[in-house]
Design a protein around this nucleic acid. Structure first.
Lengths: 198, 198
DNA sequence: CCACTTGTAGAACCCGAAGTATACATATAG
DNA sequence: CTATATGTATACTTCGGGTTCTACAAGTGG
């Protein structure tokens, strides 16, 4: 007890890693992304997030106004990263490698955006800028090979979500041969498109 | 005001349609299925359900122990109907027409089961009997055309969910030509399978 | 006509989780 | 060395929504 007052107990626990504000904010966003990606907004408590970040709840409030504010920041960053990695894609076949890159770069954010946020009424707006554009462009591309009608609607509704699910399934499968993964997923998408043709 | 004390106000409102217990229970389950199918368990309040059923909250508690109990009853009935309509399917191509029949017969229940309940940790168990079996059988069928490896995992993870999404998209598209819808969806599934082959 | 069931209306209670407050500890820049 | 930013710990308040309770109204079968 002479040299250090910190070591009162047997376990002298690491002396608390401190970060500067901006870095801590990022670290919290990382942790929150992981936590939210497990169960979505409603089912994830602030305690879960604090535990994931190895912090107390109080610290969360020093960086974010509220749970909703934190969630928005998480989604915003995930959207931003996605946009940066893919680069304003056209949602044709050329977009698939970009999606694979984006999903690899930020798997938790990717899953969160498309497995959960897409179905949460209060926050769907935040990613609508992405999904709306992709649906629109996707539909235009489809219209070149599928005649107007219910089966075009069917394909246009189905394919964007399917493409994203295929990418997530690729993540879940351990990201096998990244060289040709895009080709396979594109082939799968074409298979679905073919089924919608007359 | 002479013949009827009920008509105190201008609008004599229909004299409250009464049902016997069992029928009312079914009617509540119908309404709750619709309400839950819009936003899932957490985001749906008892007030929403009561409004949908055109009843007061108190009545809900005369028929169900709790919100969770009601939800379980809703899911159970939807599972039961599904099982009855499809009849212990094998989740090969022969199952697709059965799924279309089931989705047509109970669209709200179908959507609820596979769009929401499948992602709700607390209740997933209730439909796991279905999804687990379908995944298992589906994987065995896939293993006949795809060699063991990550792409088999990929397809096995992706296809069951995709099939269900394809059925829901068909509902959303207005159920076009039911005669050949199963063929188209089967073709789409085959297209995905083909993409997983070497 | 009576008893019973089905129904309304709404206040009150309760609990978990979000959000707030205060006191204290200590790395680290300057 | 000291000031300050970063952090812990914990108790407290607030709030929404599920749950309970009480009081009353009225259709229906025996």
């Amino acid at each position: 007890m002479s040299t250090s007052e910190a070591g009162e107990e047997a376990a002298a626990a690491q002396p608390v890693r401190r970060l500067r504000r901006a870095e801590r904010r990022e670290q919290i966003l990382d942790a929150a992304t992981r936590a939210f990606a497990r169960a979505g907004y409603a089912a994830t408590g602030l305690d879960d997030i604090a535990a994931e970040a190895a912090l107390t709840r109080a610290m969360l409030y020093r960086h974010f106004e509220s749970k909703a504010d934190l969630y928005r920041a998480v989604l915003d960053r995930a959207c931003l990263r996605l946009a940066e990695t893919t680069g304003a894609d056209d949602f044709d076949d050329a977009a698939i490698p970009a999606l694979l890159r984006a999903a690899s770069a930020d798997p938790d954010g990717f899953r969160l955006l498309f497995r959960y946020a897409a179905r949460e009424p209060d926050f769907r707006e935040l990613i609508d800028s992405i999904t709306a554009a992709s649906r629109e462009v996707g539909r235009r591309n489809l219209a070149r090979v599928i005649p107007e009608g219910p089966w075009l609607d069917w394909a246009a509704n189905l394919i964007p979500g399917f493409t994203l699910e295929a990418v997530i399934a690729w993540l879940d499968a351990g990201r096998p041969d990244p060289e040709h993964a895009a080709e396979r997923i594109a082939a799968a998408v074409h298979g679905v498109m073919a089924a919608a043709q007359p």
